[in-house]
Design a protein around this nucleic acid. Structure first.
Lengths: 334, 334
DNA sequence: ATGAAAGCGCTAACAT
DNA sequence: ATGTTAGCGCTTTCAT
């Protein structure tokens, strides 16, 4: 396999010149440059980026940790991060933690090992030891999907608490008092935790009793949302409205209502969270909270890359969310 | 920042010993090993994988190219690839081509630059020059999502043509003669191309005329499927059944029927492709063709890693698909 | 079981 | 504009 040494020899120049052709082409006389380039082409030469990174002490790679990819939620922000990074000449290394703290720790270790220039994390709730390891290895990072005002981590996110509160208030303002919750597992997911906290505190603030049978934590799968909803429907006194803390589960919940011959929103109101594309194609279209996944991903990547280039530190940034009124919620029938 | 040299000095051993502790721990006396390990811990030491890869000439990284991630289709196989790779000690570098041949070429170059030990590609239709570059750099690879019996590329996939033919035959067997098609852009997507070819040849074989107004190519977005369907519904003589060559577009198509007050499947039959989780939660549940995305991803990763380890070459493997009968297709009303 | 030392392929001063 | 050369941090062969 060809190396810059080989190319240099054939072209009759030094390795430094070949390196310049690759990295700073305009510092090389066009004649020399063209000759070198054509030789590289002819030999299908691809420079060894590992050697380059080792020598230059930067990898032009950024690491991203997400809990799962199988679900559109993180796919959207991931895509935005990929796009922004590729555009800036960076490659993204994605690690999927499957909501496991242990796996996440191993993945972060791997990414640092690969000498990523920076790290984008999902959620803020992790072992202090991990943050220490990141700091000791001088890796700039940014937290997404979870605001951390109290902590010192640089964050680019919306506020899960406020957004979930908006959703809950919406149901209450419609006259509902028996309100259910379907959300992710709060022990492994601080975003779900915040959303549940908002739901509970909001009911509390309105003097509404919190009914354990109305609260279901489950995986981010449609069928899990469907099962949870079926259980609530089967209750003696079922809720008249349900807040699904993500659209995936909401789709399942709507299917469960349909299974039970309950009309949405006439018989039961459902509100989602995320505003995935699917929210526009459910029957009826889903009222939900729009989350700035794309912008969050883009901004996080851009800010991180700026920080890597030493142009600036990362300032915590709160992005707005928005209640999207469609057709799955209605005023409580007296 | 600490290096193995630093660790070695503190521990009073050579760098070779530290390296052994990291890579072949059992070749080091347990006493020495424990001392070295505790020093590494205390200093949050993370070995430089780039230097290691450069020296050992293997990166324990595999590259994956997919067209998009925003849609569950490729997310499922990607997840399977990630899992299998992580389990085998490999990191996955994902490149997203956005269905652009040019972007894909640049990404493949980047991955080879990063010295991936192997490459997993989506679809088989690309410039010969790219295959040559891959070969010249001795990178083992495997093609997924598209069978290539005629070509020499090692492939692990199902057969798009046969699967799409099954779907079309299903509609014909139900008595339909006016059959529409909604699929991806065949110029940039050989999977979509094969599915369209199967649709057309199948109609032809049954003596059914191919009606250009019944064929819509569009992006993998629900709303694009919805728009395409609306157009067909507005036709003077609309189709009585539509084959959506992926479930995403099918969801949009169902929504369009609902918009137009057409009942599925009473007024119009719809069949999808992929069997994504959403297919079970549409109203009505979607008849579709199940595609072995998870198994394909897993097998591709496992086979590639085996090839990397020199255990075997990659043998082309055809995975089965399956017609999943649910409730969105029905016999044509006379 | 451990150490010494020669690279791996590139970058980046510094020199010319 | 181009060349010389000393590393980057690790692995690995060969000694001991």
């Amino acid at each position: 396999m060809t190396t810059i040494k080989g190319v240099a020899k054939i072209a009759g120049v030094s390795t430094a010149t070949v390196s310049r052709v690759i990295n700073e082409p305009n510092k090389v006389r066009s004649e020399t440059r063209d000759r070198v380039i054509s030789i590289m082409r002819a030999h299908h030469f691809v420079a060894d980026g590992l050697a380059g990174s080792l020598a230059s002490q930067r990898s032009r790679t950024i690491g991203l940790i997400i809990p799962t990819i199988a679900n559109s939620i993180y796919a959207l922000s991931t895509q935005a991060i990929q796009r922004a990074s590729q555009a800036a000449g960076y490659t993204v290394l994605v690690g999927i933690s499957d909501f496991s703290a242990k796996v996440e720790e191993a993945l972060i270790h791997r990414l640092i090992e690969r000498r990523v220039d920076g790290l984008i994390l999902t959620g803020a709730d992790r072992n202090e030891e991990i943050y220490r390891k990141i700091a000791h290895n001088n890796v700039p990072f940014v937290v997404t999907w979870q605001l951390t005002r109290s902590r010192e981590q640089p964050t680019i996110s919306f506020d899960n608490y406020q957004a979930a509160r908006t959703a809950t208030e919406h149901l209450i303002s419609l006259g509902h008092g028996r309100i259910g919750l379907i959300c992710g597992r709060t022990e492994v997911n601080d975003r779900a935790f915040e959303r549940r906290r908002a739901y509970e505190e909001c009911l509390d603030r309105h003097g509404i009793n919190i009914e354990p049978d109305y609260i279901h934590e489950c995986e981010f799968e449609m069928f899990e949302g469907r099962t949870a909803m079926s259980r609530m429907i089967a209750l003696e006194s079922p809720p008249t409205a349900v807040f699904c803390a993500n659209d995936i589960q909401a789709v399942g919940a709507i299917a469960a209502c349909h299974d039970a011959n309950l009309r949405v929103p006439n018989d039961i109101s459902i509100i989602g969270f995320d505003d995935l594309p699917i929210a526009q194609c459910t029957i009826p279209p889903l009222t939900t909270v729009r989350v700035p996944a794309n912008e969050m991903g883009n901004r996080a990547a851009v800010a991180l890359i700026a920080a890597i280039r030493g142009k600036s530190g990362i300032k915590t940034l709160e992005l707005p969310t928005e209640l999207i009124l469609r057709n799955s919620t209605a005023r409580l029938k007296q």
